[in-house]
Design a protein around this nucleic acid. Structure first.
Lengths: 182, 182
DNA sequence: TAAGGCATGTAAGACGTTACATGATTAC
DNA sequence: GTAATCATGTAACGTCTTACATGCCTTA
């Protein structure tokens, strides 16, 4: 069975920080703006158990003061599964481009003309805010950690993508104006 | 209740082509490379019933030769719901950038060095193939239909995004080479 | 007459979401 | 002491996927 992106990211993060807790994986998923995974308890805890059941992780409990904490490690089967997920071959779905704004613009004709300008304004400032957030993350990164090159590249990807969207948005605006649709 | 992207796209497509069948919506979802929605019967048919139950669609059956076919129309509540989904305000999730390749590069360090060059090669050609597909779709579009400006913009978005990814990929390659990671 | 498209659905299972629920530990 | 964080889970619900299932219609 091929791993889902969520499962693969969990295994990848465990490999970087093992032994670690399920709770730690939740914070991994929550903290990076370049990661879009859910950090809900209802998805993470069952996923960890599932990965263990499938032989990709192993765990042990350890006393920590008054409480028991479960630590996970990646097995060699887990590492193999991660490499299979990474590819090559990469699945066709890896070329998918998803832009919620693009999805919406397909139906912009159903919005009254009077609201369209505001629509563009709002999205533009939301994208700009997100862009700043990621630029900050990139600037703040500790370059000494071994994975810094990959993390930087991921941020750089998100930054380039957001800039492209902003560029596209202004082109879209101009074109619709020219066609009297704004 | 706010519509999901899938539901909103269905309502949007129905507004363009009503009255139409569930099967027609499936082909809408399947055919455009700029739409990434599932066209599986198991998601579309229950969704149409759900939207009708919620008052966003209405339907009637009609004899077509030997078979009964169900046609859907959008109600005014449906149109209102679509506009609410479109925004403004746009949800914060609309600034999400999802790139499966970016997700993977975060964990590229777990792939043996020997496979990394091939990894880049494969992804590059997959992206290039997808790019051509969408450029073709854009070139083939009938410009007389009233929604052509929006459809063109959506394709243009996908094209710009794919080009950006290719640009990023070559930057990533160069950087990793310079750092002896390739 | 056979293949492919049109048309509609169901069933089982996997997965994610939200909300609920608990309790220990740490920092202010 | 109290709020935030660390830590672990469960339950109900909704949705999507895959696979199964049927039958009509059109075109080669």
């Amino acid at each position: 069975m091929l791993l889902s992106d969520l499962e693969a990211a969990a295994i990848g993060d465990i490999l970087k920080h093992q032994p670690c807790t399920a709770h730690f994986i939740r914070t991994c998923f929550r903290e990076s703006p370049a990661k879009h995974f859910s950090d809900s308890a209802g998805s993470v805890y069952p996923m960890m158990r599932r990965l263990e059941k499938n032989g990709y992780l192993e765990s042990y409990e350890q006393q920590d003061g008054q409480r028991m904490v479960r630590y996970y490690r990646c097995t060699s089967a887990g590492k193999t599964a991660l490499q299979r997920w990474l590819g090559p071959p990469v699945p066709e779905s890896a070329t998918l481009t998803v832009d919620p704004v693009r999805t919406r613009i397909l139906y912009l004709g159903r919005l009254p003309k009077s609201r369209r300008t505001k629509w563009f304004d709002e999205i533009e400032s939301a994208l700009q805010a997100k862009l700043k957030l990621i630029q900050q993350e990139l600037g703040d990164r500790d370059l000494s950690q071994s994975d810094a090159p990959y993390l930087n590249l991921a941020d750089e990807n998100a930054i380039m993508e957001l800039k492209t969207r902003l560029r596209w948005l202004s082109i879209a605006r101009r074109q619709l104006e020219e066609q009297g649709l704004l």
